[in-house]
Simulated scan of single mutants.
Amino acid sequence: MAGTKTLAATTRKGTGKGAARSVRRDGRIPGVIYGGGDAAEPIALDYRELNKLIYAGHFLTTIFELDLNGAKQRVIPRDYQLDPIKDQPLHVDFLRLKPGASLRVQVPVHFLNQDICPGIKKGGTLNIVRHAIEMRVPADNIPEAVTADLASLQIHDSVHITDLPLPEGCKPTQRERDFTIASISPPLVAAEEPAAAAATSAAPAAAADAKGGKAAAPAAAAPAGAPAKAPPKGKK
């Protein structure tokens, strides 16, 4: 389960691009808290702390106890924007979590025992169809990842969603079919080059000629200027 972390924030005044740029000039990142039946609250967060949390991983599945001017709220990040050139955070959205709440999250899939997978050891390749699965989970039980065990998979075998052990209360949002998570593809066999195939077929014939003696000489051409033989009688 994803852990709970604390994060300090302050209320910011004003909304829109101008107000957001002003917050960034002060070394802070604009954000907003919404949901839970309450009005949206514009906030500002410390740039360095937020940047570290984003790049530490699992940011969108981590529950935060947000200290907003001394009042604490339980929230989870729902989205964030990065500068397309500098990859620095520009804005972050938080969702309030009320008791008993559930939410949709993308849960990563971790693949275990690739080193002993029979299909991979025979030359097969792990073909990952889904690196993450969208699930509805309890706010108090957000998994960091689900695992797929490859220890017994042969070439052409697949792992489906029903093969994965899911944490209690966690259900995939796509429930109408048993979709594929990954499969073991067979090794690729390169097609034989035509020239190589011709050379291979010609080799036995050449060997046979060498073993039986000299090859038969081609028929001698008629000397230049020699008269042509008359056709047999009765033939033109």
Rank of each mutant, 00 (worst) to 15 (best):
T125H: 11
I85W: 13
L164Y: 06
N141F: 07
T62N: 08
G124D: 03
P167R: 03
F111M: 09
D67E: 15
V189F: 11
L82Y: 10
Q174S: 07
N141K: 14
G124Q: 00
A148L: 01
L153M: 08
D87P: 04
I161R: 01
D79R: 08
L103M: 08
P172Y: 03
V109F: 07
Y80D: 01
R74F: 02
F111P: 07
P77R: 07
A195K: 05
A145S: 09
L97P: 10
P172Q: 02
L60G: 05
D140K: 03
E193N: 15
I142E: 02
R104G: 13
F111N: 01
G57W: 13
P194Q: 09
G119N: 09
L153E: 06
N141M: 01
P167W: 08
K86S: 15
L95R: 11
L153Y: 01
T125V: 11
P186D: 10
C170P: 01
E168K: 14
H58C: 10
A148H: 05
I155S: 01
I120A: 02
Q154Y: 03
L103W: 09
T162N: 15
G100A: 06
A148P: 00
P143K: 11
V159E: 04
F59A: 05
I155V: 08
I63S: 09
A56E: 13
L97A: 04
N127Y: 04
V92D: 06
T180E: 14
I116V: 15
K171A: 02
E144P: 07
D115G: 08
D140M: 04
P84N: 10
E176W: 12
Q73Y: 06
A101G: 04
Q106G: 08
D140Q: 07
T61A: 03
T62L: 13
D79W: 07
V137Q: 01
I116G: 04
L103T: 04
R130Y: 15
T162F: 09
E65F: 07
R175F: 10
A199Q: 11
G100T: 00
E192Q: 05
G119L: 06
I181N: 00
M135F: 02
L166E: 02
P77T: 09
V109Q: 08
P99S: 12
P172H: 10
D79E: 13
T61S: 14
D115P: 02
P165H: 15
E168G: 06
R136S: 05
L164C: 09
E134S: 04
A191Y: 10
A56G: 11
V159G: 00
G70I: 08
F94A: 04
V105R: 07
I181H: 01
Q88V: 14
S185P: 02
A196P: 01
S152M: 03
V137H: 08
L153K: 12
H131E: 13
V146E: 11
I184Y: 03
A151H: 14
R104F: 09
A202Q: 05
F94M: 03
Q88N: 14
I133Q: 05
D115V: 07
V105K: 10
P194V: 14
R130E: 11
H58A: 13
L188T: 12
P186Q: 06
H156G: 00
L97I: 10
I142Y: 06
R96M: 13
S201M: 14
L82K: 11
R78N: 08
